[in-house]
């Protein structure tokens, strides 16, 4: 629950809206927020609701196609990233993102979206303790992560993650 609650709090602060108290649903064990406009269930649904409440709908994608790509990567945060039991699964996620981001600045279509923000929040705990050569190994994810943490207001109170500018490690196979 920690990661979901932390992401929702940071997102609400970034958007300048009130998130309300995040609790864990008894039956489904997913995050729930009981707000003035009713109960919202699930990390992605809560996040998308906060974006709409802040009237920043462009973060959800401008076209139908972009919206479905944003939805896809929001689902990826919950079903792939948040389901990682250990380093082995995390490595799979980092490799997939690294390949995907090789030719991209943002996750969807050249503009920052909720997908970048929620994936950045979800990856943050893993990047904080990551050694430099691992960051080197996932060069495209690191470049993307570094870019998102510099986006105005996204990082909030999360610790800053340092990346080396120069590639001092040659391309040894790990």
């Amino acid at each position: 629950m920690a990661e979901a609650g932390q992401s929702i709090a940071a997102l609400a602060a970034y958007l300048g809206v009130k998130a309300g108290k995040v609790t864990l649903d008894g039956r489904d064990k997913i995050p729930v927020v009981k707000g003035k406009t009713g109960t919202r269930r699930g990390l992605v649904s809560i996040a998308k609701h906060l974006v709409r409440a802040a009237e920043k709908n462009s973060l959800l994608g401008k076209t139908i196609e972009d919206q479905s790509a944003v939805d896809q990567w929001l689902e990826y945060r919950v079903s792939q990233l948040d389901s990682c039991q250990g380093d082995k699964e995390l490595t799979v996620v980092l490799k997939e993102l690294n390949t995907y981001l090789a030719d991209k600045v943002y996750i969807v279509n050249h503009i920052m979206s909720l997908a970048d923000i929620l994936l950045y929040y979800g990856l943050h705990t893993h990047f904080v303790g990551m050694p430099y050569y691992d960051k080197e190994n996932y060069m495209h994810v690191s470049r993307w992560f570094d870019n998102i943490q510099h986006e105005e207001g996204v990082r909030q109170t999360l610790p800053y993650v340092h990346f080396l500018r120069t590639q001092i490690y040659d391309r040894m196979s790990h």
């Binding site: 997913i30 269930r41 699930g42 990390l43 998308k48 609701h49 709409r52 919950v78 079903s79």
Partner: peptide, 15 residues
């Protein structure tokens, strides 16, 4: 009602 759809689709994939 996009938020209601968000929640059902997320419930289906996450739960």
């Amino acid at each position: 009602d996009p938020s209601a759809l968000d929640q059902w689709l997320e419930w289906e994939s996450a739960v």
